[in-house]
Design a binder for these strands. Structure first.
Lengths: 197, 197
DNA sequence: TGTTTTTCAGAATGATCGTTTAGTTATATG
DNA sequence: CATATAACTAAACGATCATTCTGAAAAACA
């Protein structure tokens, strides 16, 4: 039995999420990670194998925590239009100071890497599918309960809401003017209310 | 009078746009730029001063050509809902194979740099303002001509359409499933038609 | 033809990159 | 207390980075 670890893996991943969210994968150097995570580089490589390995762990954690927290409510069997509305309102109310220009890590990664998937883990595609599916689930529930306007195309509406929230993530990331963000959320909510019968 | 240039500045910028669009700023090395632009590195630095200078020229060109081409129609004094519809249809019909997973250079840059503006030229903020303003112009024209549903909040709708197209740019960039993209465009168009009287 | 000027081709510079290494330190066990 | 083991510290490694430099080549002019 040798020297005990003076770091906690989960804490490292949590800090890494913030660094990668702010700087991207390419913009976050190993030196920066060492400094901001407060751990020596030997332990970083021992624990995660590589910078890419740490990045993958951060993406996975982000999916579980952040995406799960925000989109989980839409995935519940009893989810409906109210859950969608709460989500849209949440993002619209945040304003440019919220999350300090970080945006969504998975959305940022989608843009940074484009169609490439260096680790082959498919985090970005899974993310898109999850958002799309969450909206479809909630809309389908609303339809089954007779709460959705007849003739509403669930596939289209789900794609629409997915692209709306992704657009909001980009605006949050780049600290776009607040009027744009609030407008985006308000109009999306108005459209949602129109869908409701 | 000495040796003549064997490169054309405008051609270099056009090629640079594609390289930066695909790889981002950080992901495009000087070696890569030299190779793909077909020019020697001395000329590159002589012409643009730095990699950042070339990048800025690419952003400016992109704004003029691509953003101008797509959003220019919305900025015309006679622009209305038809121009918005054509724009949404254009992006929705492209599919994941279009533009080879490139997305929109300015949108990609917004995500890559977040709130930072290394060159201080404000290209990203100007881009957001332009998109927002273009939608506002077209919607205002429609309202003035009595073609817009009474009570429609132009600021909200403009923010909404801005976030929708930005969301589509991210989907195009990351080659998201085609159903999501088509759905996003179709629902946005349906919403636009609902706004029309 | 020689000279001057500009661009090209390739190498070099100093710094940074991701990752590994070697010596030291801290811990548990016998 | 001595030993073995694991983590820490700091440096090093080989490669890449953006930018500059140097000699060669190409062009126009006298």
């Amino acid at each position: 039995m040798g020297r005990r670890k003076s770091y906690n893996r989960n804490e490292l991943i949590a800090k890494a999420m913030t660094v990668f969210r702010e700087h991207g994968f390419a913009g976050a150097s190993a030196d920066m990670l060492v400094e901001k995570l407060g751990v020596n580089r030997y332990s970083l490589y021992a624990e995660f194998g590589s910078k890419q390995g740490l990045f993958d762990a951060a993406l996975e954690r982000y999916e579980e925590e952040f995406v799960g927290r925000r989109f989980g409510p839409l995935e519940r069997p009893d989810a409906g239009l109210n859950e969608i509305r709460a989500l849209l309102a949440f993002y619209g109310e945040r304003g440019p100071e919220a999350a300090g220009g970080l945006g969504c890590l998975l959305c940022n990664t989608a843009v940074e890497f484009g169609p490439l998937d260096p680790s082959g883990a498919g985090f970005v595609q899974a993310y898109f599918e999850r958002l799309f599916s969450a909206f479809k689930t909630a809309l389908s529930n609303a339809k089954a309960g007779g709460a959705l306007r007849p003739g509403a195309d669930i596939e289209s509406e789900a794609g629409f809401f997915t692209s709306s929230v992704i657009g909001m993530f980009v605006m949050l990331r780049a600290k776009a003017p607040e009027a744009m963000l609030k407008g985006a959320s308000n109009a999306a909510i108005a459209h949602l209310e129109w869908l409701r019968v």
